[in-house]
Design a protein around this nucleic acid. Structure first.
Lengths: 223, 223
DNA sequence: ATCTTTATGTAACATTTGTTACATAATTGA
DNA sequence: TCAATTATGTAACAAATGTTACATAAAGAT
């Protein structure tokens, strides 16, 4: 598909047609690149001087502590702008590693050009602000989630978010291994607590397929 | 002191003189209010329609989970703009409760006027973006900190951040009770681990006064 | 189809943290 | 100054999680 049509689907170009995008972009600089699985887009600490827009494929953002353990922060799928929140500020550097999950095509716009677009295009400006604000909301929810103390609470919160009020059947969108990284806990610990919830008759778990038996008790856990 | 002189010290008015600020503000709407200790500035979930600038006093932002336990996110002292990151986005609502610590004077500017200022004043626009980006950096550091698993690691990280490489003496800027909320752990647990660090000969602790005896071992803990 | 790799399931044991309750010290306010 | 409130120190016990090691199952590669 045409690159600009894909770009037009990204929130940051909301209200800007696929035809207008190349016009807007050509008022400044930009580069297009392809990346392969496990390529490194950015490392934590590196200065962030470009707005990155992922056109196809998917990325992941993760924090790595000194001991080498990772906390997955986010999975990012195209089309979407990232790094909008890292461009400015006292310390305009990446706080996370950004790696490629699935082969990706990426547009990057240097900071100066971003500033020009912000000044010259009101729609882009509002989209940019929305993009940053959405990211802040994501981060605060992440903090809220990490502040849940027990694994039991985290699972309950996670399952309730995943399942609509009517459907009691959930397929986890990530592997248990992956999920344990997202939770910031050890995989066997996560698995043990799933077993306990099953023993308690609250859920039925078979690998990634989970049946919610007693939603009310799940709700009580997070209350 | 003159309100506008105080405001001129806030980062969001960087490069804008105390004389220019009332001119800028009067191009839109704004309100000035005084608040007293423990007054509520905003509750989590409430829509955020104003940029809030604290002129004097101090606030705190905290998350409250269903069981009533709080995780302190941030202490905020004047002069500073807050809520810049909550104004826009799909869900422009406060993710935290904002309460008054010390009697405060607060300027609030409605979202529409903020948008006007952003369009008409490039300096304000860049300051605003910097303000949001700084907040994002703060949030990601908060996530990073919360992802440290043991209390021992959290203390080590916290003390190393506080103390310069030369000074080995630190006075905690918050009470232990307060700090335990910031860490997201119980106060007796925090205290116990401080004792353990003392037994291990790594620190000397007397209430909020902490002497770092063996910085290298402290560094090893976070590695 | 077979090999390789990754994901999942499990168990015993160690470690860490929470919980509760109470004592003492420091600070605040009247 | 004295009372009331808040902060700090401590201990015993319960609960939750991490650690390690290994078995089995599923998915991917050749």
């Amino acid at each position: 598909m045409n690159i600009f049509k894909r770009l037009a689907e990204a929130n940051i170009f909301n209200g800007i047609s696929a035809d207008e995008i190349p016009v807007l972009l050509s008022q400044g600089n930009y580069t297009l690149k392809r990346y392969q699985k496990n390529d490194i887009i950015a490392l934590a600490g590196q200065p962030c001087n470009h707005l990155i827009i992922i056109i196809s494929g998917s990325l992941r953002a993760e924090m790595v502590d000194f001991s080498g353990k990772t906390l997955k922060v986010e999975d990012i799928t195209a089309p979407r702008a990232i790094a909008s929140g890292f461009l400015f500020g006292k310390n305009n550097s990446f706080p996370v590693n950004v790696l490629v999950n699935e082969d990706a095509q990426i547009l990057s716009i240097p900071k100066d050009s971003v500033l020009d677009h912000l000044k010259s295009n009101e729609i882009f400006q509002v989209n940019f602000l929305n993009n940053i604000s959405n990211f802040i909301h994501f981060l605060t929810e992440r903090i809220y989630f990490l502040s849940f103390k027990t694994i039991r609470e985290k699972i309950a919160q996670y399952l309730l978010n995943l399942s609509s009020s009517e459907k009691s059947f959930v397929v986890l969108p990530k592997s248990l291994t992956n999920l344990s990284e997202y939770f910031g806990v050890e995989r066997p610990s996560l698995h043990r607590v799933l077993n306990e919830l099953e023993k308690d008759g609250i859920i039925l778990a078979d690998r990634r397929k989970i049946q919610i038996i007693d939603r009310n008790r799940l709700i009580k856990i997070v209350e």
